[in-house]
């Protein structure tokens, strides 16, 4: 068990896990991390189980002081992490010591950073999840975003911290975050509510991320997506990544904190493997939507899972194969040493 102190929360830093499932029929949003790829890899790097709670920081990262020695990993968008004033690498596990300060100095690429701690953040589960649902004031740290002075507990990792540090995600698995991105979508469920011109605009024009973008949804602007009659429907369910188009014809991508149901037409849904891309988009970024089939999307999802499994395989902490106690004489002096063969 260790502690970390929030010196400065940055723009918005939240405790999140994979999400609060099972309560959508009761009107409770799923919440959870926006970029599940970076989140999962972060936990893999520090030897955590995949559902462990991490910090999600947007745009401007927090300043954190460690009260104990522990291993952390920073993945996702690059907010320029430094430790005691020196830049530290992302996508690898790092040993930090008591008194060390992690400071993020500025946004360089992407939008959201994930800070995973070996052992995972120790906050109580509310309705089966540690995720913060800020509007409902539950989960995470007292149901809210972090503030200066907050003290977060980190659970004791199963492994010796020294053995967990220095593990790297192989380069080919580290995503880049361009300012123009392609999001693949599956058309529907209300595709028949749009005119041919409307659908053509959606699939051929670029849409820009506006400043109204948060964990609930990303409002985009671009060529109007025309409806046959109106943008209203009798309320139905909203899936993660749904592209909602209200009467004004401008799309909104619904994300982690989205409401469970809504009364606007949904032209398409971003596919699962591309959700991490939109989670890392920021105001001004440009989006091009590309149509794929549900079968193709699910095939890509299986490939993505294979990829994550490969990273997991490449990122296991080294293990002690044999141990020997030796007495060595060096320059006439005798030493008792313990030799561990690792793999």
């Amino acid at each position: 068990m260790g502690n970390v102190k929030i010196i400065n929360p940055g723009l918005i830093t939240l405790v999140e896990d994979s999400g609060r499932y099972g309560y959508q029929q009761y009107g409770v949003p799923v919440s959870g991390v926006m970029d599940s790829y970076s989140y999962r890899l972060g936990n893999i790097l520090v030897g955590n189980k995949e559902g462990a709670a991490v910090l999600e920081a947007a745009m401007m990262g927090p300043t954190i002081e460690f009260s104990d020695q522990m291993v952390i990993a920073i993945t996702g968008g690059n907010l320029s992490p430094t430790l005691n004033g020196s830049a530290i690498p992302m996508w690898q596990s790092i040993l930090v010591n008591k008194g060390d300060r992690l400071i993020f100095t500025g946004l360089r690429a992407g939008c959201r950073s994930y800070i995973a701690f070996s052992g995972g953040i120790d906050v109580p589960e509310v309705m089966g999840s540690k995720s913060t649902y800020t509007r409902g004031r539950i989960g995470g740290y007292n149901g809210r975003a972090l503030k200066s002075g907050d003290l977060l507990g980190v659970r004791h990792p199963g492994e010796d911290p020294g053995r967990l540090s220095g593990i790297k995600v192989p380069d080919e698995y580290i995503p880049d975050y361009p300012n123009t991105l392609e999001l693949r979508v599956i058309i529907g469920p209300q595709d028949d509510h749009f005119t041919l011109e409307g659908m053509q605009a959606f699939l051929s024009e670029q849409y820009e991320v506006t400043s109204e973008c948060d964990r609930m949804g990303y409002r985009l602007k671009g060529k109007k997506i025309e409806h046959v009659k109106s943008g209203d429907i009798i309320s139905d369910g909203i899936a993660m990544g749904a592209v909602q188009v209200p009467g004004h014809g401008q799309p909104i991508i619904m994300l982690a904190d989205r409401q469970t149901t809504g009364g606007y037409t949904k032209i398409a849904n971003v596919i699962s493997v591309d959700l991490p891309k939109i989670a890392q988009a920021k105001p001004g970024d440009r989006i091009k939507f590309v149509k794929v089939t549900v079968r193709k999307a699910q095939q890509m999802l299986r490939e993505m899972e294979d990829k994550i499994a490969a990273v997991k395989k490449a990122c296991v902490p080294w293990k002690v194969v044999t141990t020997r106690l030796l007495t060595l004489r060096i320059d006439g002096k005798c030493y008792n040493v313990k030799v561990e063969e690792i793999k």
């Binding site: 599956i186 058309i187 529907g188 469920p189 209300q190 139905d236 369910g237 899936a239 993660m240 990544g241 749904a242 949904k266 849904n269 971003v270 596919i271 699962s272 549900v294 999307a297 699910q298 999802l301």
Partner: peptide, 9 residues
């Protein structure tokens, strides 16, 4: 109705 690759309506 298809609603992405993880849900249907």
């Amino acid at each position: 109705l298809v609603t992405g690759d993880r849900a249907l309506v």
